[in-house]
């Protein structure tokens, strides 16, 4: 069964139709790359998955369970919305780390706040926090940031900040981890370290949706490619579509990227 199923998502900004009916599905452990030129709706689609935008139409299913239905969900209460959105994690283009917290605290903050909802929180606060911290240290190790665990974001390079941002998203153990152009704000020599981390997640069986302009990376890491153009999926398929694009639009797009 598909871990993620998106049906007929549409989104308007005022009179502009940004998404005109998006359908796709994703199996557990798969990596999906969404490519396309700026303004094609890639980022908006990702934001819809993460409940940062509310689609006008459509449904989203995670593990077969409906987490969003435009017909009924417009007036969901905040708590229910938060629970549903925790199925997803999001890594932003410009990191958005919390500047006043250290690397460790950036990763621990949200899990610690969420732990307050646990019925045994009062009794086991210390143990719960210790467990969260231990888990955070493990994840920070995975992204290779252990040596800078007590530093503040302003003391880190862009690539390091993005690796911490990935750790922060992983700490909540989302079923689907989304990346919004994770390397676009980085100097070319720093993109490698971030891509390496994402690649390692792929080996670790993480289900991912990646909006990216790194064509070679998308081709290498993805099980599935979606090419978006003017708010629709113009072409989708396995990474082989890079070599054999069926549509003129994808051909033109790839040519522009020098593929």
């Amino acid at each position: 069964m598909a871990v993620l199923e998106v049906k007929n998502i549409t989104k308007n900004f005022g009179r502009v139709e940004v998404l005109k009916g998006i359908d796709f599905s994703l199996e557990k452990g798969e990596a999906l790359s969404i490519i396309g030129s700026s303004g094609s709706g890639k980022t908006t689609l990702l934001r819809c998955l993460n409940f940062l935008e509310t689609p006008e139409n459509g449904e989203i299913y995670v593990d077969g369970e409906c987490v969003f239905d435009a017909k009924t969900d417009k007036k969901l209460n905040a708590k229910e919305l938060r629970n549903r959105q925790l199925n997803f994690g999001l890594v932003f283009q410009n990191f958005n780390l919390f500047p006043q917290y250290t690397v460790l605290d950036n990763v621990c903050l949200a899990p610690k706040l969420l732990a307050k909802n646990r019925p045994d929180f009062r009794a086991n606060k210390k143990a719960i926090f210790a467990e969260i911290e231990e888990n955070a240290r493990e994840i920070i190790e995975r992204v290779g940031m252990t040596s800078r665990i007590d530093m503040y974001p302003c003391q880190l390079s862009g690539g390091q900040q993005q690796r911490v941002a990935i750790a922060r998203a992983l700490a909540l153990n989302p079923k689907i981890l989304c990346f919004d152009e994770p390397t676009s704000a980085l100097d070319p020599e720093l993109t490698g370290e971030v891509l390496k981390v994402i690649r390692s997640l792929k080996d670790g069986d993480c289900t991912m949706v990646i909006v990216t302009h790194e064509m070679n990376f998308a081709k290498e890491v993805s099980d599935k490619i979606i090419f978006m153009d003017e708010g629709v999926i113009a072409e989708q398929g396995p990474p082989e579509i890079f070599d054999n694009p069926k549509t003129e639009r994808l051909k033109a797009f790839l040519t522009a990227f020098g593929q």
Binding site: R82, Q85, N96, A110
Partner: peptide, 21 residues
């Protein structure tokens, strides 16, 4: 806005985003 959005996608309540972030 990114700070609010980051808190939001990490499942924080509006109050938590305001007071903690």
């Amino acid at each position: 806005r990114g700070q609010y959005e980051a808190g939001h996608v990490l499942g924080m309540t509006k109050g938590q985003v305001f007071f903690k972030v």
